[in-house]
Design a protein around this nucleic acid. Structure first.
Lengths: 245, 245
DNA sequence: CGGAATGTTGATAGGTGTCAAAGATGGTGG
DNA sequence: CCACCATCTTTGACACCTATCAACATTCCG
């Protein structure tokens, strides 16, 4: 693991208002400030492995990491995508059930387990924020279950693209319900396939099909242009048939 | 919703040591005791519907409920199974994203939202317990994602049976790693299919196949006998290839 | 520039869904 | 108590979607 240490004040931290520390007051923030350390894991690096004991909990500051499980015969399923402000690890249990890998270079803000668990006990604002974040993750995981259990390959790929659009909109604050959008895919075809419960080939074919149908353009394999979101959304097959919030 | 009110002391509550109140001290328990009420929902009844606003949070005291989502065209995927001690609802958000239905008669221990949220703020023991339970649910959801994304129909059914065996073992404390086991299925074939992301027909065919292979016996459609767990476990295809913990 | 990794396309096979019908099961009322 | 009907479950035939195996194209880096 390639380590790069730095010192940045929590006050000017890019994930200050979204991470596990979002609801901290100045006093609590000072405590966290005192025990945190930064680590950067290079693209492709392992952040944690299933079954192994973690002595640090951390927040993703920048980059993109994957949470996945690999079966004995090599089949792999991604079960989570970690983006800036997402939290890694569970207070109260040292061992993880899933592998966590860096999909891009990832910078983490780490806390020693023992120290962080003490903070959880003394600072209800951290505990409450962590509960909210975990409940949100649970909703995401369950929507993902619906996708994996019931959607066709085409619907899965469309959902994937729309979720990227939505994320982008959340980060920039811009809410485009229609009009052209350009996306840089943070994942390779293989990772997208693992994300969607498909094979690389099927995933690639779906991209091709969407291109032939005029729903997307693919200047490069990692760049997707959606000429008009309104054409893509009707096929998403959400429970209410409407556009994604 | 068929309501039946009762009065039972928390002290002798069957889920006292596993539910959201598990870590409460006597003082906290007294507060909960004061605001709780019991409700029984008959088999097949709706406990909550996606999008609707919930003004009560509750714990399952007895019975079995399902958490699921139905798509616009009728496709349905179950994403959670609620058993005694499981919690329904999220503090801090009134609307649910999923439907919750009673698979058997279900008795709930309910708390008014506002009152419970106040307790969350004043009683760290409740908040902490809820966090632990939510983290556990997240792990379950993610394992379920692996099942839905990568396992074959046969593997899914075997996993389902083994998970029932494991649950039984947890409740009774008996840990049978081998030998014959008898199971009463709490779910219909349709519910099992929704649980596993399969159709009724495929699910039924898998039960038939397992019977023909001698791995299970089916005295009635709702009763499964496993002559020897050791024959079933190798096919579970867990990540480590080993038996289920 | 060259080789490895990544992505696309094709042919084929196999697993699961769909449509259809027959068998069990269980509850209800006569 | 039994007959009847609705519901649940099983089984069959067939179609279709996705996985698999294979080859080729492209991109990325060393």
């Amino acid at each position: 693991m390639n380590l790069r240490l730095a010192r940045t004040s929590c006050i000017e931290c890019p994930i200050r208002h979204r991470a596990v520390c979002a609801e901290c007051d100045d006093t609590e923030l000072a405590v966290l400030e005192g025990i945190k350390s930064y680590v950067t894991v290079p693209k492709g690096g392992r952040i944690a492995e299933a079954g192994e004991s973690l002595d640090h909990l951390s927040s993703v500051v920048s980059g993109c990491a994957t949470v996945s499980k690999t079966l004995a015969d090599g089949r792999r399923q991604m079960v989570g995508l970690l983006l800036p402000s997402d939290f890694i690890g569970r207070p109260g249990r040292a061992t993880l059930s899933f592998d966590i890998e860096a999909a891009t270079d990832v910078t983490l803000c780490r806390f020693q387990r023992r120290a962080f668990e003490a903070i959880i006990r003394s600072s209800p604002n951290v505990a409450r924020r962590l509960l909210t974040m975990t409940l949100d993750e649970l909703d995401v995981a369950r929507d993902w279950q619906v996708l994996l259990g019931r959607l066709t390959a085409r619907e899965r790929v469309i959902h994937f693209l729309l979720s990227l659009v939505r994320r982008e909109a959340t980060e920039t604050g811009a809410a485009h319900r229609s009009g052209p959008v350009r996306l840089e895919l943070p994942l390779s075809r293989e990772m997208i396939a693992d994300y969607l419960g498909l094979t690389i080939e099927t995933t690639s074919r779906q991209f091709t099909a969407l291109r032939k149908d005029g729903l997307i353009e693919t200047p490069t394999a990692r760049t997707i242009v959606v000429p008009d979101l309104l054409n893509l959304m009707p096929e998403a097959m959400d429970e209410d048939g409407g556009p994604i919030a």
